[in-house]
């Protein structure tokens, strides 16, 4: 039986708790803690689960990022990926280019049985790379997946929508799945798994070697500014009843919502 290849695309993102400093006018100081995009952890956890049910299978983590993204791939391997591919690039890319690079790196490596990734990245919040990747492969895709079941040649998924509604979707395999938070509880690695991940393979490919022409469609950051906060907190004091009265007055007169 041939090996079922599960590709998981991960992104190397600044820790959401990090202090972000803008350098120049269009980029951030990258000298902060970076880690694996939280939604991608759900994708990895699910990939490890599928591998068990679909043996023989392997999980390959794929990332487009700077050399330092090797750390993110080590985390991915500690969480269950068997090996990984890092497409090394010195700069940030938009989702249009990223999806082309990921497609090219995966296609070079093998034939995907299924591709998983997080529903969005917490730094750029583009929410679209998975759909572009799917379109580049000509595959179906679903996002905010909270339940995934493989049956023969299809994936049965549940996608969470608003107010608790879900779409139940059947996709032919291979397909692209955007993991939502409800999909599982990420399984954090044990110390032996972390040690073992250091010996696993990270194949590095220079982005230039993929020979991707600059797409005519793109998005560019013209300016990046720290978000200014111009709130001047004012205290409401007095008894509970007096505080409630002031809040009601603010809602009515200042905010005009009641």
């Amino acid at each position: 039986m041939s090996l079922f290849k599960i590709y998981v695309c991960v992104k190397h993102v600044p820790d959401s708790a990090a202090t972000i400093t803008v350098l120049g006018s269009d980029r951030i100081d990258a000298n902060v803690t970076f880690l694996i995009n939280p939604y991608d952890e759900h994708a990895l956890t699910e990939a490890a689960r599928i591998r068990q049910q679909h043996a023989p299978a392997e999980v390959v983590a794929v990332c487009l990022g700077p050399s330092a993204a090797e750390n993110t791939l080590r985390s991915a391997m500690a969480m269950g990926a068997d090996r990984s591919i890092l497409v090394v690039t010195p700069q940030d890319h938009d989702s249009i280019f990223t999806a082309r690079a990921l497609k090219s790196a995966i296609a070079q490596d093998g034939e995907p049985g299924i591709i998983l990734t997080g529903k969005e990245a917490i730094d750029t919040e583009g929410m679209q790379t998975l759909f572009r990747l799917a379109a580049n492969f000509g595959l179906p895709a679903a996002t905010n997946v909270v339940k995934l079941q493989l049956q023969d040649a299809a994936a049965l998924v549940e996608c969470e929508k608003e107010s608790g509604a879900v779409d139940v979707i059947r996709m032919g395999l291979p397909c692209v799945v955007g993991a939502g938070k409800g999909l599982n509880t990420p399984r954090y690695p044990t110390f032996p798994e972390i040690v073992k991940s250091r010996k696993k393979e990270v194949k590095k490919i220079d982005v230039a070697a993929l020979g991707i022409a600059r797409p005519a469609s793109r998005v560019e950051i013209i300016e990046l500014k720290p978000a200014v906060e111009n709130r001047a907190p004012r205290a409401l004091t007095g008894s509970a009843a007096e505080i409630a009265r002031q809040i009601a007055a603010i809602l009515k007169e200042e905010a005009r919502v009641i």
């Binding site: 600044p14 959401s16 202090t19 972000i20 803008v22 951030i28 917490i122 730094d123 750029t124 919040e125 005519a216 469609s217 793109r218 998005v219 560019e220 950051i221 013209i222 300016e223 990046l224 500014k225 720290p226 978000a227």
Partner: peptide, 16 residues
């Protein structure tokens, strides 16, 4: 907004 609401980005789109 970018980076967890800590920055505001002005972005230009190019294409058809």
């Amino acid at each position: 907004s970018r980076y967890s609401g800590k920055t505001v980005a002005t972005i230009r789109l190019s294409g058809r």
